[in-house]
Design a protein around this nucleic acid. Sequence first.
DNA 1: GTGAAAGCGCTAACAT
DNA 2: ATGTTAGCGCTTTCAC
Lengths: 337, 337
Amino acid sequence: MNIKEIAKLANVSVATVSRVINKDSKVKSATKEKVESIMKQFKYTPNSHAIRLSKGVKDKTIGLIVPDVGNILFSEMVETICSRAEKENITILLCNTNGDYEKEKKFIKLLMEYRVKGVIYIPGKYVSQKNYSFLNEIRKQNIPIVFLDRKIEGFDFDGVFLDNYEISYNLTKTLLKIKTKKIYFISGALEISSAYDRFLGFKNAIEQNNNFETTYEIKYGDFKFNSGYELGEEILKNHKDEELTIYVANNTMALGFFKILKKYSKNFKKVIIGIFGTSEILDLLLEDQKYVTCKVQNKEIAEKSFEILLKKIENPDLQNENKKYILYNSTIINKLD
Amino acid sequence: MNIKEIAKLANVSVATVSRVINKDSKVKSATKEKVESIMKQFKYTPNSHAIRLSKGVKDKTIGLIVPDVGNILFSEMVETICSRAEKENITILLCNTNGDYEKEKKFIKLLMEYRVKGVIYIPGKYVSQKNYSFLNEIRKQNIPIVFLDRKIEGFDFDGVFLDNYEISYNLTKTLLKIKTKKIYFISGALEISSAYDRFLGFKNAIEQNNNFETTYEIKYGDFKFNSGYELGEEILKNHKDEELTIYVANNTMALGFFKILKKYSKNFKKVIIGIFGTSEILDLLLEDQKYVTCKVQNKEIAEKSFEILLKKIENPDLQNENKKYILYNSTIINKLD
DNA sequence: GTGAAAGCGCTAACAT
DNA sequence: ATGTTAGCGCTTTCAC
């Protein structure tokens, strides 16, 4: 149903219909009502592209692909990007993927169709069996894309990340200052690049810094509260020693771990905790603990990713320049004594 | 710069340029390169509306206006709405306002220009001196709009909210079961409808349920962590009695309050806390406390707002039907003994 | 391999 | 107060 058909049905010209739509000029109220009733009857809604094309409106929109806006880590990134975008009069199409491959693919295609000016992409898991060629397609369209926080192997795009490996390595090294037989590692899914790099940093730090005196055991979680709680319980209920050393790969799981730790804490004389990332609340909870942590610069990397994207949007000639991978390091916060 | 001009500069037809843009058919590589270099040189990017108009693509987008996506309360709402929207193949334009009137106005106008199919609107403060006539304009365009969580006085739109008054009234009533001389109320800005209704429920509960034996003092915060901390300190450092009763109007401020309470807790024998809303982390912190709280159904109201919007989008005839204001009540969680 | 031209659905200037 | 019509910038069929 388009304006022409409405016009015909109402026995008026398209111009009149257009006027009615836009509550514009002086249309006789009789005709106005007739047109409106026809529009209603046929559930007509004007085509936004036609309107905007004829009005000469161009718009700057970018796509923002996020695993889970409900997660405070990402929502802070989204907020940062929104605020910067607003200043540039750039509008944001928000795509929440749940970390799901199919949705990521669907959204990328959608954004291409929308002809967005650029994309900031926080992937979920990278599954090597899956086909990520949709990333090639978007490149062919010359739409700049910047990875944020997590990467997909094998694609040469710009990206801004935490230096997960390095930070985790240093954090573990600090943790090892307290001699322990064993460290439990509560990990995120290793298909997520950040989780993998954190694990790798942890593993290498152990292997390179203690002559293998310390062993470790890894538990696979999903970066969420409950998995910290549940994996924590698995560990706590089976651990007989009065000393416990544990490394939790993100702060949300750490909160879950704390919840269960409270229940079991009487069993342990000494609990040492390493946590990748902290937060105001975590600090509160950790007050009486011995722990090692670091600040996660999520807002900073989000902002940086936007700046890079902006530059690419404004200078399409840079599009095929060398891609930038930027890593943000972070100082270790040592509260071991 | 448009396709025609590019064509002219490259000495080819628009059709050829179009083919180059779309990496489409067999274009001689010489011509292809020539066209591409011209496009690059003039920073040409095709007009998305023209493309989509000619391709016959229609899109369903809605606008989502939020004070602060970085706030977990709202980000959970956003997540809920995103997920539902994705199922309906509806795309979301995210507008982060910072609670700022000017931005709200700007975004509403933007969304009208975009001809979005509908809007979900979480306002910031309602300032009666400001001019909210942009809401009339969007109504004239027949774009359905649903208020979420907070309202603007004087506009007859659909909306879904917590029953802030009722819940707060009940919460306070429960709190009053413990006799106290005075209750401190850490409030949000009263220009925010939810904050105001919570205060009103609190006030009326006190006045109606204790023959005015209990007095109260209100402190004005901004619903954020720091304001719980700072207002908490104001209260704690001046309160001489060993008993303290306090009502915090949202859970984020409650966390801030906890932080400062830890510092002062030795001064008090008995601290009773009322908190509007809770969370997994708050529960953790409250474990050894006497408190009254309630679950805030933020996801539920978000989902409901989407359902209402969807119905309006699908049945434009309902557009001018009676507006719905839906209030979500919540049971009080009583941990006083 | 390339071009000419119709058409996508609307707006807005100009006519009447 | 209403109609006619030339665009808006692109895609796509059909010719060549």
